[in-house]
């Protein structure tokens, strides 16, 4: 690890190196990371331990991975977890049926698309497999919503995401190993929807709880960052953002919502205020109105929706 290049995340997308990898995100990710989160990312990069992000939905857990990959110019391999995802899928998948099919059609097809005697053609690497194969630099692997998977899933991953950072493919008789010093940077997100993650997995992870920015100043910075990279869209006036974030935070703190609106809801809502109608929403109108406009964007559950309506 010592002789490899040391990567440091700063939260400033302008630090992107010119020789970034082809699989790296091409669009800058407007992301405003607080210093603690930046420190956590750097610690994870340095120790090459998975960074586990927990927090409310819509607080930018998933976005962080592309921000990191963009700034460091590293490829981003995203692995979305579903309830039936198996740990092996992140390493590789082997398509036996396709191979059987190809064997059968070979005698009729003059130009077969694949040669069935070549087992490699049926073996596809997953997100972790691809990251291990990189030689010249580490990759960022995003394991999104790990809590959606089966209970054993995180434990199955453990053996792969640790020394010696390798796995074996019996079908091709190959061992895929990460280049020492370029082990992948793993970012894991979880909503804790199905209870706690297993203790052995947690022990390996660096844990960070992504908090909602409960500060109007911070919200404004986030909006500014969000619009900076999107020149086509008209940016809302700062007075409108100030008022919007004030009202939004008031709503957030007012009641215990079932699903509290998060950062992504806020950004959608500001966008609607600015660009949905022919002209931006009137500042005075926003100040004076008792109920917020476009509340469809903020409340996604019947209970919240009704509770908010009743409040007025």
């Amino acid at each position: 690890m010592s002789n490899a290049k040391r990567y440091t995340f700063t939260g400033d997308s302008s630090h992107r190196p010119p020789d970034s990898h082809d699989d790296a995100p091409h669009k800058a990710e407007p992301y405003l990371a607080d210093p603690e989160l930046i420190e956590a990312v750097n610690l994870a990069i340095y120790l090459r331990r998975p960074l586990l992000l927990e927090g409310e939905a819509g607080c930018g857990k998933t976005r962080l991975a592309s921000a990191v990959a963009y700034e460091l110019g590293l490829p981003l391999y995203r692995w979305n977890i579903r309830s039936d995802t198996k740990a092996l899928e992140g390493q590789y998948t082997y398509d036996a049926i396709l191979r059987l099919y190809d064997v059968q059609t070979k005698q009729f097809d003059i130009n077969p698309p694949r040669d069935p005697s070549d087992v490699q053609a049926y073996c596809k690497l997953g997100a972790i497999g691809k990251a291990f194969e990189l030689v010249d630099r580490p990759a960022v692997v995003l394991i999104d919503e790990i809590d959606k998977a089966d209970q054993d899933f995180p434990n199955d991953l453990l053996t792969v995401l640790d020394q010696p950072w390798s796995f074996f493919i019996p079908e091709t008789n190959q061992t895929i190993q990460a280049t020492p010093g370029n082990e992948p940077i793993v970012i894991v997100t979880s909503n804790k929807e199905k209870g706690n993650l297993p203790a052995p997995f947690l022990r390996r992870c660096i844990y960070h709880f992504v908090k909602f920015p409960d500060d109007p100043q911070r919200l404004q910075e986030i909006v500014a960052q969000h619009y900076r990279d999107r020149e086509a869209k008209a940016q809302p006036k700062s007075s409108l953002i100030t008022e919007a974030s004030k009202r939004f935070l008031a709503v957030r703190q007012a009641k215990s919502w079932v699903k509290t609106p998060g950062t992504s809801e806020f950004l959608d809502w500001v966008e609607a205020l600015q660009n949905f109608a022919a002209k931006p929403y009137g500042l005075e109108k926003l100040k004076s109105e008792e109920l917020l406009p476009y509340r469809d964007l903020l409340f996604k559950l019947r209970a919240d929706w009704q509770l908010y309506g009743k409040k007025a």
Binding site: E36, E39, L43, L202, Y207, F209
Partner: peptide
Amino acid sequence: SLRQMLTMLWCHSI
């Protein structure tokens, strides 16, 4: 800073 680092590394819930 030590506290911050150890919190991230050793604590796995709020």
